[in-house]
Design a protein around this nucleic acid. Structure first.
Lengths: 182, 182
DNA sequence: TCTTTTTGTTTATTATAACATTCAGTTTTA
DNA sequence: TAAAACTGAATGTTATAATAAACAAAAAGA
């Protein structure tokens, strides 16, 4: 999401009308002028965090509710239609299905690795966890020197502040998903 | 909290210095000027939501982190070895691969649904999001009356405070993963 | 030591968030 | 009818968010 501004306005207007509040009443409850509220609802303003805080507190709604990306929700994603990123000389094909966003707090990749594929992932930032689900074939993962063989269906999680190596030493493709939780 | 501005600055500065980033580098990553970053860190500015979004996305930190189980790590999980829960008269088989934990903040199920399987999920608590990845076969999901056909590999997310129905009206098994983010 | 580079802060300028007020269009009431 | 009351939207003004550029202090290199 590039700019959450538009959706914020829609959420506020929805909540406000659901509760039968006028702009004036909402201004009274939140301490934000009705002119400002009107502009934010119409997407004509890029509110500061303080103003947003006052609105959320006044209306008793969460930040996630306020910033949740309504527009993308409910849309089917054609994974193979996502332009992939290639690693390992084209033998590792990554589709960024759910890119990172500050509300969900995670990122999900759909990954296909061809026979002979090999990828070294340097340590990511601390406190992130990586979750792997192998759904086709067999994947080998070496985390910090420890060797893991994952035959579908199986799963593994590890802290990604360790070096980890993915490889497919077999003769058939392996398909797996990687969820990185920050 | 009356004004979240001060704490936001402290969090950003902490994250930035932990990663050994300069203001210039952070400006490059986030697309926010270093002057602005410096002012926000020192609590001298009341940033707009757009600026905050860019910072959070660039640094891969969540909004909760900005405003607000060790033992299992590294163990391979044999998904079919997890005692499943059966729904839909045995036609829906759920493996709770990564049960909910308060740190990760989400839960992942590996689900197999046999032909003729059908499951009605009543609305969960508000503000939760459900993410579906279909990896084998074709799954039908009806969310709040909207009909979705997901042929593997494909994915869908929706707010789970709406009634949603999973079904497999076909003649082969469907396998999918469900991530619920709270 | 002197220079050069790298850091974060400060300054000057522009863009715009936020507010109070006014306005036009509806609905209510007399 | 009108007039009064209420709605959201459009003004003009002020405060400040956001940027680029200049700056001072510290660190690194010669």
């Amino acid at each position: 999401m590039v700019d959450p501004t538009n959706n914020i306005g829609n959420v506020i207007r929805k909540v406000r009308s659901e509760r039968g509040l006028t702009l004036d009443e909402t201004a009274g409850i939140t301490g934000v002028s009705k002119a400002m509220l009107g502009q934010i609802e119409r997407g004509k303003s890029n509110p500061t965090i303080s103003i947003l805080w006052k609105i959320a507190a006044g209306l008793k709604i969460s930040f996630s509710e306020l910033l949740g990306s309504e527009d993308e929700i409910g849309e089917i994603i054609d994974i193979e239609g996502i332009d992939p990123v290639y690693e390992s000389e084209g033998k590792m094909i990554l589709h960024d299905v759910f890119p990172y966003n500050p509300i969900s707090g995670f990122e999900l990749f759909y990954i296909k690795m061809l026979p002979g594929g090999y990828h070294v992932s340097p340590p990511h930032q601390s406190s992130t966890e990586e979750h792997i689900i192998v759904t086709e074939g067999t994947l080998v993962i070496d985390v910090d020197g420890r060797h893991h063989v994952l035959k579908a269906p199986s799963a593994l999680k590890f802290k990604s502040n360790l070096e980890h190596v993915y490889s497919n030493p077999y003769t058939v493709d392996v398909v797996f998903q990687s969820i990185v939780k920050y």
